[in-house]
Amino acid sequence: MTYTDPKDIQTPVNLEEFEEESRQSSKDARRQPGFLPIETNWFDRLFISVVIWVALSLVWLRFLEPAGLPLMISNAISIAIAITIIWKG
C-alpha cells in the first residue's frame, strides 16, 4: 500500500472562479484609498480637477485679478490641485 501526501492530491480548480478572483485582486490594487470621500476612478478624478480648475479661474477673474494677481497663478494652482487629486485622490 502506498502513502499519498495530502499536499499531492490535486483538487479540481474552478478556473472561472480563479480568473474572477485574480481580476478582482488586480482591480483592488488599482483602487487605492485616497483622500476623496467617494470612490473614484481616474476619469472621475480628472473630471473633478477640471470642475475645480474652471471654478477657481472664474473666482480668480472676479476677485483676485483686479487686485493685480495674474490668471497664470490660478492655472498653476489648478494644475497642482489636479495632479494631487489624480495621483492621491
Binding site: P33, G34, P37, I38, E39, V51
Partner: peptide, 15 residues
C-alpha cells in the same frame, strides 16, 4: 454631478 454624488455616492463610499 453634485446631486448624483450627494444622493448615490454615499452608498458606495470607500471602506
Amino acid at each position: 454631478w453634485l446631486l448624483y454624488v450627494s444622493l448615490i455616492a454615499p452608498r458606495n463610499k470607500k471602506g
